[in-house]
Amino acid sequence: MPLTPSTTHAQASAVAGESATRAHRREKKSRLHKDDPRSPLHRTERRWALAFVAAPVLGFLLFTAYPLGYAIYASFTRWNGLGLQVFIGFDNYVQLFNDQYFHKALFNTFFYMIGIPIGLALSLLLALALNRKIPGRTVFRTIYYIPVISSLAAIAILWQWAYNGDFGLVNQVLALFGIDGPNWLASTTWAKPAIIIMAVWKGLGYSMLLYLAAIQSVPRSLYEAASLDGASAFQRFRAITLPMVRPVTFFLVVTNVIGGAQIFTEINIMTPTGGPEFSTASAVWYIWRQAFRYQQMGYATAMAVVLGLLILVITLIQFRLNRRNSFIID
């Protein structure tokens, strides 16, 4: 069930529609028109409208609001995920506040976000390159987009092999340049960068596609005017392209941060024990482990609530910053 802002939108317009009908009823009592509340047609259509509105609302209540409320309740209980829930107040929250592994997992999770600006810069460059009329452009676009549509689990396994210390593709390529590569996933220093590289590679195609669309929708007249004024290619990029793709950048940053905060599959497949000395464990990975390996569902839920709040706060800050920096072209 997709839950988009359209849900609330539909609700709002339904309410508005209703009051309008009421006003309507008061004004035109005499004629039996299809808009008249007493007409059978009006009643049927009204019921239909409500039914259509009800579907997403029910879906939201059933699949989002209820689980969310239940999760908040569960985070105040000691619960093994199977049976009895014992209410223990803020104990779980106190525990996670003192849990060094949770702190480390949170740190790792935010460390991975270094990949977001790197990925955006690279994909913007790629989009600029592939926006030119170069031979084989469609082929390149396709190649960069393939990782996006591939299964994450399969990709994680491939990269796990690629990172293999002795036989891995990555180190073989490095060896061509005379570099003796590390044993990526077994090293406390290199395990996190290894995951970042993979995540950047995986996300490149998607960001590139959005940037391509954004670049192509920049009015040509702006570039022409700038050229007449003697602006160099770099100036045109800095003063026109960059601000014009800002909304896309904002969208990508927000969605990447939200997605990045929930990184799990890569970690769980490439480093099933959380990496050497817990160096790759992400917050969601740790939550999953507490919930399903140690049967600490209540504690895991408390951590999930905290993570959710963190994401919410960060997203709100981003929106605030964006509003301050936004601009409108006449």
């Binding site: 406390t188 024990t273 959380g274 050497p276 817990f278 507490q290 390996r293 140690y294 049967q295 600490q296």
Partner: peptide, 15 residues
């Protein structure tokens, strides 16, 4: 009852 205490033994043993 659960294995968290035992897993802890291995988490930082690499050094």
């Amino acid at each position: 009852y659960n294995t968290a205490w035992y897993d802890e033994f291995y988490t930082n043993i690499q050094p």
